[in-house]
Nucleic acid binder design. Structure first.
Lengths: 114, 114
DNA sequence: TGCATACATGCGTCATCATGCAAACGTAGT
DNA sequence: ACTACGTTTGCATGATGACGCATGTATGCA
């Protein structure tokens, strides 16, 4: 089979290859924010998270918004403070599903055409 | 604990959050190339893979090179043809490790400070 | 009402990047 | 040596994105 003819022969890998998710995670500052938030283990405000990295508050705010839109973080507002948290379950599910889908695509020993 | 004070309290998540990997996967054309290659289930040449997407050969060549440098694909040359293949094991390991690290960061019920 | 806090948004700037074209490179066959 | 083929690379261009600053919006407090 030619590559461009390959359709749905090994699971829903196309649905799991989410460009927006990877794009959100493909930036050092955003990655650092995620790391700080995960290691902190509790919801944090924008101001708190801004201390993690050496960029302006406004930049942090934008990064957090992008991470939320891409499904990495969740946001909850309390008064005038916005708390962001890691969507642990969503992320672990996404990466485990992706790992499984990739594994499924891998040709096993004895996978040969007649 | 403040976010910027969080260090190594929940596993080597920083080592697993590879910005280069995510950046490589955060582009639709590259994602399509990976998808085609995975679904095809065998090493493919640049020319073959170029039929997957509507961009120039040179663009495909550059994308494949980047995917290789970021650890997504492997390359092997046979004569004047270069065959790319998915690094199945490496990718599944990376995503599974990441899922586990994120899961470990998640606060369990009863995780409270004294 | 007035003011401070916490965050979001508009805008300009600079860097990065995806793309196509042309040319170069290496290899195989005649 | 010449030619054809597969791939890579140099270059210009247009688009996207990260950043800082200033401003706007919403909330809490006196």
């Amino acid at each position: 089979m030619k590559p461009h003819e390959a359709s749905q022969c090994c699971g829903p890998i196309d649905d799991l290859l989410d460009a927006e998710l990877f794009k959100a995670l493909g930036e050092p500052t955003r990655l650092k924010l995620l790391s700080c938030l995960a290691k902190c283990g509790r919801p944090c405000s924008v101001t708190e998270l801004a201390e993690c990295c050496d960029v302006d508050y406004s930049v942090v705010s934008r990064h957090l918004g992008m991470l939320e839109r891409s499904g990495v973080l969740s946001a909850s507002k309390e008064g005038r403070t916005v708390f962001y948290n890691v969507r642990y379950q969503h992320l672990t599910d996404a990466f485990r599903s992706l790992a499984k889908a990739i594994e499924t695509c891998r040709p096993k020993c004895g996978t040969k055409k007649p």
